[in-house]
Design a protein around this nucleic acid. Sequence first.
DNA 1: GCCCTATATAGATATTCTTGCATGTTTGCA
DNA 2: TGCAAACATGCAAGAATATCTATATAGGGC
Lengths: 115, 115
Amino acid sequence: MDTYQDQARLLKCLAHPMRLQILDQICQAEECVCHLAAVLAKPQPYVSQQLAVLRNAGLIRDRREGTHIFYGLADEQAGIHISAILAALLPAPAGAIRGHAHIAGCCCPRCAAPE
Amino acid sequence: MDTYQDQARLLKCLAHPMRLQILDQICQAEECVCHLAAVLAKPQPYVSQQLAVLRNAGLIRDRREGTHIFYGLADEQAGIHISAILAALLPAPAGAIRGHAHIAGCCCPRCAAPE
DNA sequence: GCCCTATATAGATATTCTTGCATGTTTGCA
DNA sequence: TGCAAACATGCAAGAATATCTATATAGGGC
Protein backbone atom coordinates (compact mmCIF):
# COMPACT_ATOMS: atom_id res chain seq x y z
CA MET A 1 0.00 0.00 0.00
CA ASP A 2 2.60 2.49 -1.17
CA THR A 3 -0.10 4.75 -2.49
CA TYR A 4 1.46 7.98 -1.32
CA GLN A 5 4.74 6.98 -2.90
CA ASP A 6 3.07 6.31 -6.23
CA GLN A 7 1.03 9.50 -6.20
CA ALA A 8 4.07 11.53 -5.24
CA ARG A 9 5.96 10.01 -8.14
CA LEU A 10 3.15 10.98 -10.47
CA LEU A 11 2.95 14.52 -9.12
CA LYS A 12 6.69 14.89 -9.44
CA CYS A 13 6.31 14.46 -13.16
CA LEU A 14 3.73 17.23 -13.26
CA ALA A 15 5.69 19.53 -10.96
CA HIS A 16 7.82 21.08 -13.67
CA PRO A 17 7.02 24.28 -15.55
CA MET A 18 7.97 22.97 -18.99
CA ARG A 19 6.14 19.69 -18.55
CA LEU A 20 3.09 21.57 -17.29
CA GLN A 21 3.17 23.76 -20.35
CA ILE A 22 3.49 20.71 -22.57
CA LEU A 23 0.45 19.13 -20.96
CA ASP A 24 -1.39 22.41 -21.25
CA GLN A 25 -0.74 22.33 -24.99
CA ILE A 26 -1.67 18.73 -25.64
CA CYS A 27 -4.56 18.35 -23.21
CA GLN A 28 -7.05 19.21 -25.93
CA ALA A 29 -5.43 18.03 -29.16
CA GLU A 30 -2.27 16.14 -30.05
CA GLU A 31 0.80 18.09 -31.03
CA CYS A 32 4.10 17.00 -32.54
CA VAL A 33 7.51 17.46 -30.97
CA CYS A 34 8.70 20.19 -33.31
CA HIS A 35 5.62 22.25 -32.52
CA LEU A 36 6.10 21.86 -28.77
CA ALA A 37 9.73 22.87 -29.13
CA ALA A 38 8.60 26.00 -30.99
CA VAL A 39 5.95 26.87 -28.39
CA LEU A 40 8.27 26.34 -25.43
CA ALA A 41 11.16 28.07 -27.21
CA LYS A 42 13.46 25.28 -26.15
CA PRO A 43 15.83 23.05 -28.11
CA GLN A 44 14.24 19.87 -29.44
CA PRO A 45 16.34 17.40 -27.41
CA TYR A 46 15.26 19.17 -24.26
CA VAL A 47 11.60 18.83 -25.17
CA SER A 48 12.11 15.23 -26.15
CA GLN A 49 13.57 14.55 -22.76
CA GLN A 50 10.61 16.07 -20.94
CA LEU A 51 8.28 14.08 -23.16
CA ALA A 52 10.21 10.95 -22.24
CA VAL A 53 9.63 11.68 -18.56
CA LEU A 54 5.90 12.06 -19.13
CA ARG A 55 5.81 9.00 -21.39
CA ASN A 56 7.63 6.80 -18.89
CA ALA A 57 5.17 7.89 -16.22
CA GLY A 58 2.34 6.80 -18.49
CA LEU A 59 0.86 10.29 -18.65
CA ILE A 60 1.04 10.72 -22.39
CA ARG A 61 0.89 8.51 -25.45
CA ASP A 62 2.58 8.94 -28.82
CA ARG A 63 1.28 8.26 -32.30
CA ARG A 64 3.57 8.18 -35.31
CA GLU A 65 2.50 9.79 -38.57
CA GLY A 66 5.29 9.66 -41.10
CA THR A 67 8.29 11.46 -39.69
CA HIS A 68 6.19 13.30 -37.16
CA ILE A 69 5.26 11.94 -33.76
CA PHE A 70 2.16 13.35 -32.15
CA TYR A 71 1.74 13.36 -28.41
CA GLY A 72 -1.53 13.40 -26.48
CA LEU A 73 -2.81 12.71 -22.98
CA ALA A 74 -2.99 9.05 -21.99
CA ASP A 75 -5.99 9.61 -19.79
CA GLU A 76 -7.91 6.76 -18.16
CA GLN A 77 -5.14 4.48 -19.34
CA ALA A 78 -3.08 4.82 -16.18
CA GLY A 79 -5.09 4.32 -13.02
CA ILE A 80 -5.19 8.07 -12.42
CA HIS A 81 -7.13 10.63 -14.40
CA ILE A 82 -4.59 13.18 -15.42
CA SER A 83 -7.09 15.46 -17.04
CA ALA A 84 -9.00 15.77 -13.75
CA ILE A 85 -5.88 16.92 -11.97
CA LEU A 86 -4.99 19.25 -14.82
CA ALA A 87 -8.48 20.68 -14.76
CA ALA A 88 -8.14 21.46 -11.07
CA LEU A 89 -4.77 23.00 -11.71
CA LEU A 90 -5.21 24.74 -15.03
CA PRO A 91 -8.71 26.18 -14.93
CA ALA A 92 -8.19 27.74 -18.37
CA PRO A 93 -5.99 25.45 -20.46
CA ALA A 94 -4.26 27.25 -23.31
CA GLY A 95 -5.07 24.45 -25.72
CA ALA A 96 -8.78 24.78 -25.04
CA ILE A 97 -8.95 28.56 -25.24
CA ARG A 98 -6.67 29.49 -28.07
CA GLY A 99 -6.63 26.20 -29.91
CA HIS A 100 -3.58 25.26 -31.91
CA ALA A 101 -1.00 28.04 -31.72
CA HIS A 102 0.29 28.77 -35.21
CA ILE A 103 3.98 29.41 -34.89
CA ALA A 104 6.02 30.98 -37.66
CA GLY A 105 8.86 28.67 -38.61
CA CYS A 106 7.31 25.57 -37.09
CA CYS A 107 7.52 22.63 -39.49
CA CYS A 108 4.53 20.70 -38.20
CA PRO A 109 1.59 19.91 -40.49
CA ARG A 110 -0.89 21.78 -38.30
CA CYS A 111 1.21 24.93 -38.46
CA ALA A 112 1.62 24.57 -42.22
CA ALA A 113 -2.16 24.33 -42.65
CA PRO A 114 -3.96 27.64 -43.21
CA GLU A 115 -5.34 29.37 -40.14
CA MET B 1 2.82 35.54 -16.52
CA ASP B 2 4.93 32.93 -14.83
CA THR B 3 1.91 30.79 -14.22
CA TYR B 4 3.55 27.49 -15.05
CA GLN B 5 6.42 28.33 -12.75
CA ASP B 6 4.07 29.07 -9.88
CA GLN B 7 1.94 26.02 -10.43
CA ALA B 8 5.02 23.84 -10.69
CA ARG B 9 6.27 25.23 -7.41
CA LEU B 10 2.96 24.44 -5.81
CA LEU B 11 2.88 20.93 -7.21
CA LYS B 12 6.41 20.33 -6.04
CA CYS B 13 5.22 20.81 -2.49
CA LEU B 14 2.55 18.18 -3.02
CA ALA B 15 4.87 15.77 -4.80
CA HIS B 16 6.23 14.19 -1.67
CA PRO B 17 4.88 11.02 -0.02
CA MET B 18 5.08 12.32 3.54
CA ARG B 19 3.58 15.69 2.70
CA LEU B 20 0.80 13.94 0.79
CA GLN B 21 0.06 11.78 3.77
CA ILE B 22 0.01 14.83 6.01
CA LEU B 23 -2.49 16.55 3.74
CA ASP B 24 -4.52 13.36 3.61
CA GLN B 25 -4.74 13.45 7.39
CA ILE B 26 -5.63 17.11 7.79
CA CYS B 27 -7.86 17.57 4.76
CA GLN B 28 -10.96 16.88 6.84
CA ALA B 29 -10.04 18.04 10.35
CA GLU B 30 -7.09 19.78 11.95
CA GLU B 31 -4.44 17.70 13.61
CA CYS B 32 -1.52 18.67 15.82
CA VAL B 33 2.13 18.02 15.10
CA CYS B 34 2.60 15.27 17.65
CA HIS B 35 -0.30 13.36 16.16
CA LEU B 36 1.05 13.66 12.64
CA ALA B 37 4.45 12.49 13.85
CA ALA B 38 2.77 9.46 15.38
CA VAL B 39 0.76 8.67 12.25
CA LEU B 40 3.73 9.05 9.91
CA ALA B 41 6.04 7.22 12.33
CA LYS B 42 8.67 9.90 11.83
CA PRO B 43 10.59 12.06 14.32
CA GLN B 44 8.90 15.35 15.24
CA PRO B 45 11.56 17.65 13.72
CA TYR B 46 11.11 15.87 10.42
CA VAL B 47 7.36 16.41 10.44
CA SER B 48 7.81 20.00 11.50
CA GLN B 49 10.08 20.54 8.54
CA GLN B 50 7.56 19.15 6.07
CA LEU B 51 4.86 21.26 7.67
CA ALA B 52 7.08 24.30 7.20
CA VAL B 53 7.34 23.54 3.49
CA LEU B 54 3.56 23.34 3.18
CA ARG B 55 3.09 26.42 5.34
CA ASN B 56 5.56 28.51 3.33
CA ALA B 57 3.72 27.49 0.18
CA GLY B 58 0.50 28.75 1.74
CA LEU B 59 -1.15 25.32 1.56
CA ILE B 60 -1.87 24.94 5.26
CA ARG B 61 -2.59 27.19 8.18
CA ASP B 62 -1.79 26.73 11.86
CA ARG B 63 -3.80 27.52 14.96
CA ARG B 64 -2.26 27.54 18.40
CA GLU B 65 -4.13 26.05 21.33
CA GLY B 66 -2.00 26.07 24.43
CA THR B 67 1.16 24.14 23.74
CA HIS B 68 -0.40 22.34 20.82
CA ILE B 69 -0.46 23.68 17.30
CA PHE B 70 -3.15 22.39 15.02
CA TYR B 71 -2.70 22.35 11.27
CA GLY B 72 -5.44 22.44 8.65
CA LEU B 73 -5.83 23.13 4.95
CA ALA B 74 -5.62 26.81 3.94
CA ASP B 75 -8.07 26.35 1.11
CA GLU B 76 -9.42 29.28 -0.89
CA GLN B 77 -6.86 31.45 0.87
CA ALA B 78 -4.16 30.98 -1.71
CA GLY B 79 -5.38 31.50 -5.25
CA ILE B 80 -5.50 27.76 -5.85
CA HIS B 81 -7.96 25.31 -4.37
CA ILE B 82 -5.84 22.65 -2.79
CA SER B 83 -8.75 20.50 -1.81
CA ALA B 84 -9.87 20.26 -5.44
CA ILE B 85 -6.48 18.95 -6.45
CA LEU B 86 -6.37 16.61 -3.49
CA ALA B 87 -9.83 15.33 -4.36
CA ALA B 88 -8.68 14.52 -7.88
CA LEU B 89 -5.64 12.82 -6.48
CA LEU B 90 -6.92 11.10 -3.36
CA PRO B 91 -10.37 9.85 -4.26
CA ALA B 92 -10.75 8.34 -0.79
CA PRO B 93 -8.95 10.51 1.76
CA ALA B 94 -8.02 8.68 4.93
CA GLY B 95 -9.23 11.56 7.07
CA ALA B 96 -12.70 11.39 5.56
CA ILE B 97 -13.10 7.64 5.72
CA ARG B 98 -11.57 6.66 9.00
CA GLY B 99 -11.78 9.99 10.80
CA HIS B 100 -9.23 10.78 13.46
CA ALA B 101 -6.83 7.87 13.89
CA HIS B 102 -6.43 7.14 17.59
CA ILE B 103 -2.81 6.31 18.15
CA ALA B 104 -1.54 4.72 21.33
CA GLY B 105 1.15 6.87 22.89
CA CYS B 106 0.15 10.04 21.05
CA CYS B 107 -0.05 12.98 23.40
CA CYS B 108 -2.57 15.03 21.46
CA PRO B 109 -5.93 15.97 23.01
CA ARG B 110 -7.92 14.21 20.32
CA CYS B 111 -6.08 10.94 20.96
CA ALA B 112 -6.51 11.35 24.70
CA ALA B 113 -10.27 11.77 24.23
CA PRO B 114 -12.34 8.57 24.39
CA GLU B 115 -13.04 6.88 21.06
C1' DG C 1 21.65 2.23 -51.40
C1' DC C 2 22.30 7.58 -49.62
C1' DC C 3 20.83 11.86 -47.61
C1' DC C 4 17.73 14.84 -45.13
C1' DT C 5 14.40 15.68 -41.58
C1' DA C 6 12.19 14.61 -37.21
C1' DT C 7 12.93 12.68 -33.01
C1' DA C 8 15.45 10.05 -29.24
C1' DT C 9 19.23 8.99 -26.18
C1' DA C 10 23.63 9.61 -23.60
C1' DG C 11 26.80 11.82 -20.75
C1' DA C 12 28.28 15.84 -17.81
C1' DT C 13 27.67 19.26 -14.39
C1' DA C 14 25.44 22.66 -11.43
C1' DT C 15 21.67 22.92 -8.51
C1' DT C 16 18.07 21.48 -5.64
C1' DC C 17 15.81 18.16 -2.56
C1' DT C 18 15.77 14.76 1.20
C1' DT C 19 16.59 13.37 5.67
C1' DG C 20 18.69 12.99 10.16
C1' DC C 21 20.46 15.26 14.11
C1' DA C 22 21.45 18.98 17.39
C1' DT C 23 19.74 23.02 19.14
C1' DG C 24 16.50 27.05 19.78
C1' DT C 25 11.83 28.93 21.06
C1' DT C 26 7.34 29.32 23.10
C1' DT C 27 3.85 28.00 26.38
C1' DG C 28 2.13 26.26 30.70
C1' DC C 29 2.84 25.18 35.36
C1' DA C 30 4.87 24.78 39.98
C1' DT D 1 12.11 31.93 38.32
C1' DG D 2 12.93 27.38 36.69
C1' DC D 3 11.53 23.24 34.39
C1' DA D 4 9.13 20.36 31.10
C1' DA D 5 6.37 19.66 26.97
C1' DA D 6 5.36 20.75 22.16
C1' DC D 7 7.22 22.76 18.08
C1' DA D 8 10.47 25.15 15.09
C1' DT D 9 14.89 26.00 12.99
C1' DG D 10 19.77 25.31 11.23
C1' DC D 11 23.12 22.59 9.31
C1' DA D 12 25.28 18.99 6.59
C1' DA D 13 25.95 14.78 3.71
C1' DG D 14 24.08 12.20 0.20
C1' DA D 15 20.63 11.53 -3.51
C1' DA D 16 17.95 13.14 -7.10
C1' DT D 17 16.87 16.83 -10.83
C1' DA D 18 17.45 20.14 -14.46
C1' DT D 19 19.54 21.42 -18.43
C1' DC D 20 22.99 21.56 -21.93
C1' DT D 21 25.78 19.50 -25.73
C1' DA D 22 26.86 15.90 -28.67
C1' DT D 23 25.44 11.94 -30.86
C1' DA D 24 22.28 8.18 -32.35
C1' DT D 25 18.05 6.28 -34.61
C1' DA D 26 14.18 5.95 -37.73
C1' DG D 27 11.28 7.32 -42.00
C1' DG D 28 10.72 9.20 -46.46
C1' DG D 29 12.26 10.55 -50.90
C1' DC D 30 15.78 10.24 -54.48
